[in-house]
Amino acid sequence: MFEARLNAATTLKKVLDAIKDLLNEATFDCSDAGIQLQAMDNSHVSLVSLTLRSDGFDKFRCDRNLSMGMNLGSMSKILKCANNEDTVTMKAQDNADTVTFMFESQNHEKVSDYEMKLMNLDQEHLGIPETDYSCVVRMPAMEFARICRDLSQFGESVIICCTKEGVKFSASGDVGSANIKLAQTSSVDKEEEAVTIEMQEPVSLTFACRYLNAFTKATPLSNQVQLSMSADVPLVVEYRIPDLGHIRYYLAPKIEE
């Protein structure tokens, strides 16, 4: 028996919004530790890694490890039927071929349930080693989303250049070129507005705008985003989901031919 309850459906809606542009379907691996998902996009350029800890749920029970392959378009249709404030419960029997989403209104007067067929998906897990990154940048998630959106007007690629002075995002194309520099904040009233840079070595890497923009769909989950970079390895973009877990995106760099 698997059962996981969140007091507000809005959290699950935001999690789904953060992954459904990159993935058509994905396997949710459930254990007593929580729910894990790891999947590459179709082109194998980016990877989504989602962790939702069992202690972050309002109720969590998982008697046997369970892998639930879900069509994210179908899941999205179902979650649209929930109000943001509804309690959402996901339920599945052991070895089931369906999962049930149950929504309950705050006044308990409306209860709906939606059963969705599960899929058998080929699992392609990547082994990602623990890495000490040369640069780790933390900044407001809204700021990062704004930068990715603004620069994508100028080119298909963004160059992220990080030194101890700051981080620079650049793009160029037919229109011209654009550069956005962010300095480390010296003092801020609110921690979520800070830009911080931990640098061992300066790095300069090129990434596809399209994927960075897709990652910023996670912005509603977190005030801050963390970018981890080292020369010639994938970028890690991490959003922490308060009291519940995190979503990490890995993106292979573009390299000179």
């Binding site: 590459m40 082109s43 194998h44 350029v45 980016s46 990877l47 392609e124 897990h125 990547l126 082994g127 990602i128 080693p129 690629s157 090129t206 596809a208 390895v233 994938p234 890995y250 993106l251 292979a252 760099p253 573009k254 390299i255 000179e256 031919e257």
Partner: peptide, 14 residues
């Protein structure tokens, strides 16, 4: 122009 690398160039399938 730079070319897009594949993630499997960096991480192995398990």
């Amino acid at each position: 122009t730079p070319i897009q690398n594949d993630l499997t160039e960096y991480y192995s399938l398990i």
